[in-house]
Amino acid sequence: MINYFLKTQVLALSVFVLWGCGEPEPIKTDVQKLETIARGPLFEGVNTATVEFDIQKILPNEVKKEQLSEVRIKSIQLALADSAAPVPNSFTVLLASPNTSMKECGFIQEESIKSNDYNVSLAKEQEFLEEILQDKMQTLVIDFDLKEDWFDDYTVTAVIDWELKFKN
């Protein structure tokens, strides 16, 4: 049984709000770093690491998440926190929230992992993100297919580069 563990680390370095005329206005934020954890011991096969977070924490004070509009993910970079942990066959990255449906954001195939490329291939359709981010909380879910057993916790770090806009 995999429990999910909440540990969010938010880096919000600078925020610029550009004014427009009724159009959604971009919010400049730094990347968001989230640590998803699958509680060990884990066994060979598909396992899940999760973390709950609130997108509000990386938004500037004057912007409420309910105002978010035209949200996209520019990139997600994954990394294993423990270098001794087994490298999985694949990763699938999903987002969920209490009042929306869980959606696939992207994945990393075995070929990419073998060539040490941990950039997530992102879903082209991302319209669902707005609704998820506007919800009261968000859950990042990372499914990974382990090649061998692992007796410790398994931490996957996700660095998400958001493209956020908001409406007044």
Partner: peptide
Amino acid sequence: PDESLKNVPLKGFR
């Protein structure tokens, strides 16, 4: 239906 997700492994698919 999303062309960009056609290579998501079925093992592990939710």
